[in-house]
Design a protein around this nucleic acid. Structure first.
Lengths: 167, 167
DNA sequence: CTTGACTCTGTAGTCGGCTACAGGGTCTAC
DNA sequence: GTAGACCCTGTAGCCGACTACAGAGTCAAG
C-alpha cells in the first residue's frame, strides 16, 4: 500500500511496528544498504540485533538516527565527527560543549571555504570577461590564465581539502 | 647567493641559464618533486630530456608551465582538464573554444557550489544561534540538528563532489 | 674512498564516503 | 522443489591530487 511493488513478506511484518530489516531501512531512509553496513562499521549505528539467521534487525529509531546523520553531514560534519558525537551521547554524557565547539569550528571553516570559492569565482569570471574583449589571438592558451590579471597563486602545494556538502 | 644553504653543485650550473634538475624546479616552483614526476606521468609536463645518468633536465619554461597549472587549478580546473588543454595547445590547435567552454562550465559549477555552501553556512549559523537561546537541556544531542529548524535533507545519497581549491 | 646530497623507478598509501563485487546462506510464493 | 528476492561477510575499487617509501644509481667534495 505504500509503494506498489514493495509488498513482499517484508512489508507485512514491518508495516509500522518495529522490526525493520536492512532493505526496508534503506528504502525508508534513502541510505543505501552498503552504506548502512558501512556506517555500522564506522560506529554510527551501533550493532543492531540479529535474527536467528543472522539478519540485522532495526527498530524505527534508526530512521531518526539516519536523519540526524544526514543533517549533520549536510552542515559539514564528517562521519568521524558524527560518530564521536553519537558515541558521547550514547554514553549519557551530553556532547553539548563538544558539539558546540565543533560547530563553531565548522562555521569558521565554512567561511574560509566560502571566501576562497568567491575569490576563485571572481578570478574565473574576470578571465572570461577579459577574454571576450580581446579577440582569440595571442597567448598559446589564449590568455586563459597566463597573463597576469590574476594574483600570484601562492607557493603552497594546492591541496584538496574536501568540504562536505549534501548532494 | 640566492638561498643561503642552496649552494651545492646544483646552483652553479643552473644559476640562470637553462638546465634545471628536478630538485631545483621543485624549489623554484614550490611544487614537490614527487608531484612533478606525477604531473609528468599525467601528461602535464611532457617528457623532459635526460642527462646520461638519466636525470631529468628541464629548461626554465617549465616554471611558466607550472605557474599556468597552478593558476588553472586555482580557478577550479582538474589536472585532467589542464592536461587536455595543454595537449591541445602543444598540438598547435588553439584550445580557445574548448577552454572557453570548460571555463564557462566551471563558473556555473562554482556558482552551484557557492550556493550550496551558503545554505550550509546559514543552517549551521542558525543552529548555533538557536541554541544559544534555549539552554543546554533537551534533545540527546542538545538540539544540534535534530529538531526541525532545518530543511529536509533530501533523500539523495549525499555524495562528495569535490571542488578544487587552492590551499 | 667514504659520506651525503641528489636522482631514478615502481608501487602503495592517504583522505572521505561510499559502491561493487564474489561467494555464499535464508526465506517464501508458486 | 525451485526461482528469485532478500540477507550475510569480506575484500577491493573509485574519485583527485598527491605523498611516502623501498631499493638502487650518480656525483662532487673532503
Amino acid at each position: 500500500m505504500r509503494n506498489a511493488h514493495a509488498h513482499t513478506r517484508a512489508e507485512g511484518r514491518a508495516a509500522r511496528g518495529a522490526a525493520l530489516r536492512i532493505g526496508e531501512v534503506s528504502r525508508r531512509s534513502g541510505v543505501g544498504i552498503e552504506a548502512l553496513r558501512f556506517y555500522e562499521r564506522r560506529g554510527l549505528l551501533g550493532r543492531p540485533s540479529r535474527t536467528e539467521s543472522n539478519y540485522r534487525v532495526y527498530d524505527e529509531t534508526v530512521l531518526e538516527r539516519l536523519d540526524f546523520i544526514r543533517r549533520a553531514q549536510a552542515v559539514g560534519f564528517t562521519l568521524d565527527e558524527i560518530s564521536e558525537i553519537l558515541a558521547e551521547s550514547a554514553d549519557g554524557r551530553s556532547p553539548c560543549r563538544h558539539v558546540r565547539e565543533l560547530a563553531r569550528r565548522k562555521l569558521e571553516e565554512l567561511d574560509r571555504r566560502l571566501a576562497e570559492l568567491r575569490r576563485h569565482r571572481a578570478e574565473l569570471a574576470r578571465t572570461l570577461a577579459d577574454w571576450d574583449e580581446r579577440g582569440e589571438q595571442e597567448g598559446h592558451v589564449c590568455g586563459l590564465i597566463e597573463h597576469s590579471t590574476l594574483d600570484a597563486p601562492a607557493p603552497e602545494p594546492v591541496r584538496p581539502k574536501r568540504t562536505r556538502g549534501s548532494k
